[in-house]
């Protein structure tokens, strides 16, 4: 079931790629335009998606007969949401690092991730600030990466 849906998703992706690629211009000076490779890749994705979906069809039929539609029993909503927490924090960094600065953002991220895993509060506070400080100084002062300074000016 899961593979069948993934297969369908790939067919759609391939279709979109083919469509976008078909709009690329062809040039008089080059016989083969910039659309050739994306078209080949799009075609490849469609075919691969078809193979996966079709190979799942008989399993799917069995599922329909037995009326089994549960996607995945062992994953519940809570754990899915939790698994998205690193992504959410990454978006937080992207949006606020320019204003708050990399140092503050990283401290907050480490703090939150440790607290949700029930690390003792004092320990979390110390580790989150000190490790963010170390990372910040390593990159901005030794590797000369211009990390956003934000509110703190150093």
């Amino acid at each position: 079931m899961r593979d069948f849906l993934i297969g369908l998703a790939f067919i759609m992706l391939g279709g979109v790629v083919l469509m976008v690629a078909s709009q690329y211009p062809t040039m008089s000076s080059l016989q083969y335009g910039p659309s050739l490779f994306p078209s080949l890749i799009g075609g490849g994705i469609v075919i691969g998606g078809l193979v996966i979906s079709v190979s799942q069809l008989h399993i799917l039929k069995k599922h329909i007969k037995e009326m089994k539609f549960s996607l995945n029993k062992e994953t519940n909503l809570n754990s899915i949401l939790m698994s998205l927490s690193p992504c959410a924090l990454m978006i937080f960094y992207i949006l606020f690092s320019e204003y708050l600065g990399a140092l503050i953002c990283m401290s907050i991220m480490i703090f939150i991730l440790m607290i949700v895993r029930k690390v003792p509060l004092i320990f979390t506070l110390i580790t989150s600030i000190s490790s963010a400080l170390i990372i910040y100084f390593l990159f901005s002062h030794y590797l000369l990466v211009p990390l956003p300074e934000g509110l703190l000016d150093f």
């Binding site: 960094y93 480490i110 690390v119 990372i135 590797l143």
Partner: peptide, 25 residues
């Protein structure tokens, strides 16, 4: 539970430092 948050920060900073741009993040 202590290692993973720190790895996340290294990942963000590492991705950022290629072009100094959040597009890579």
């Amino acid at each position: 539970k202590i290692l993973m948050p720190i790895i996340l920060c290294f990942c963000i900073v590492g991705a950022f430092s290629i072009n100094s741009s959040v597009t890579d993040v």
